[in-house]
Design a binder for these strands. Structure first.
Length: 434
RNA sequence: GCGGCAUUAGCUCAGUCGGUAGAGCACUGGAUUGUGAUUCCAGUUGUCACCGGUUCGAUCCCGGUAUGUCGCCCCA
């Protein structure tokens, strides 16, 4: 085993039992996004390294020490595996002029890469669903995006995910706050930890988000951003809150909520659970009105959020959510050369009618083949031996009924017989449910 | 990147106070020779994560590495 090549640390395989949950999740997410008018976009996993440095911020942890960056040895180009999706999405929107005429609601889902120490709910390759609305300036889209989250948790059968909300104001307001913040922290330098000192002049806002208990006192006494906000910023924030209140969605204002990426302004929010240990944030986002211009596009407002797929799927599994494990419709059992050739015709004929068929491969006794048929979850076994082949018939055996309802059916009548049985079966089930 | 804990059959785990290992599930075969899921019988399961050290002898003790996990950091 140990001599074999293993998956890269923090980049796990998702095996079939697990992957079925992923597909259930993805189906739910896609129809949820469609119900809000979002359209898919697919960006490359690799982007030029400067894109992330400019978008995310040079002094963020992501850019400083978590990016998978490398130089393309064939042409010397600096490249990076995307650590998040917004930068690439905005790059694509600019490059293809997508919001020249009209705003866009976009989404993507896929891998992201960050070189962190792995643990549950945190991996080096992880998956996000990213949702971005570009070209919308008002608080309405912010609120809509937040309300979307609440609906998805409901669709996924999750509860206990709580909303935290904050506003970061506008760049000039942050700048004044930031200047005062630096002065304040400089006056209390002896109370700052090493990380905070390093950030003092580069990114002091992040110090407010520190969880270091030793620093809580100095943080509480720091200048508050809300006191620096102008009328427009306050109005925007209030409008978002009003819509949430109208919708009956509870939230908590967390003035220390600061996003890890530098491009945010005004509204920021996080959806948090206490069921995932240290990885409690399952969804986070906010407004980033400056990013399009910062990346060279014509200035345009924008708002978005990303969800951690691994974290949400972990919650779905904890909550007992199950993908509806529908097996195949039919399992074809056969022995003998003529029977085997007929089995292919039977199987393809059924598939022509839209019936799911697993054709037994690999030989074996009828007994062992029937075991496989049972394990497959098939509603019917189609059994073909020499007798059936000689008569151009098959034996059709219902696997989910009491007694032995097995009967011989001409090959050409097989599909119709199965379709009728499945219809009857469905009707009975509906009656039971009603 | 830092600290703690863990790593035994495909899965979930037990165990050896240092003398190379077991259960359940799963899997394979059989119980009137063409028929499952129940029951009964039989059988295979493994360099006890890897490398090195101590020892007559290590799966067990010690060190390192890898991976996982919990917390910190950070974040989805």
């Amino acid at each position: 085993m140990s001599n074999n090549i293993q998956a890269v640390r923090g980049m796990p395989d998702i095996l079939p039992d697990e992957a079925e949950f992923w597909e259930l999740f993805e189906d739910t997410v896609r129809s949820w996004l469609k119900s809000y008018g979002y359209r898919p976009i697919r960006m490359p996993i690799v982007e030029p390294t400067p894109l992330f440095k400019r978008a995310i911020g040079e002094v963020t942890d992501i850019v400083e020490k978590e990016m998978y960056s490398f130089v393309d040895s064939l042409n010397g180009e600096p490249l990076t595996l995307r650590p998040e999706g917004t930068a690439g999405c905005v790059r694509a929107v600019i490059q293809h002029n997508l919001i020249a005429q009209t705003p866009q609601r976009l989404y993507y889902m896929g891998q992201m890469f960050r070189h962190e120490r792995p643990q549950k709910g945190r991996y080096r390759q992880f998956h996000q669903v990213g949702v971005e609305a570009l070209g919308f300036a008002g608080p309405d889209i912010d609120a809509e995006m937040i309300l979307m989250g609440a609906r998805l948790w409901d669709d996924l059968g999750l509860d206990g995910i709580k909303l935290q909300l904050n506003t970061l104001g506008q760049p000039e307001e942050r700048a004044r706050h930031r200047a005062d913040l630096i002065v304040y922290f400089e006056q209390h330098q002896d109370l700052l930890d090493e990380d905070a000192k390093r950030r003092l002049h580069s990114n002091p806002l992040r110090i407010l988000d520190s969880k270091n208990p030793a620093m809580q006192e100095v943080i509480v006494g720091a200048p508050k951003l809300i006191d620096y906000l102008g009328e427009a910023s306050l109005e925007h924030f209030n409008a978002v809150q009003q819509i949430l209140k109208d919708a009956g969605l509870p939230f908590e204002i967390n003035p220390r909520l600061v996003r890890g990426l530098d491009y945010y302004n005004l509204t920021v929010f996080e959806w948090v659970t206490d069921r995932l240990g240290a990885q409690g944030t399952v969804c986070a986002g906010g407004r980033y009105d400056g990013l399009v211009g910062q990346l060279g596009g014509k200035a345009a407002p924008a708002c978005g959020f990303a969800m951690g797929v691994e974290r949400l799927i972990a919650l779905v599994r904890d909550a007992g959510g199950e993908p509806c494990k529908r097996g195949t419709d039919v399992y074809v059992v056969h022995a003998g050369e003529a029977a085997s050739r007929m089995a292919f015709r039977a199987a393809e004929g059924l598939r022509d009618q839209g019936i799911d068929v697993v054709l037994h491969c690999g030989g074996g006794s009828f007994k062992s083949q029937m075991k496989k048929a049972d394990a497959s979850g098939a509603a019917f076994a189609v059994i073909i031996g020499d007798d059936e082949a000689a008569a151009n018939e098959v034996s059709l055996k219902p696997m989910r009924e009491e007694g032995d309802g097995q009967k011989r059916v001409p090959l050409e009548a097989l599909a119709d017989t199965i379709m009728n049985s499945m219809l009857d079966w469905n009707e009975e089930n509906e009656e039971e449910e009603a």
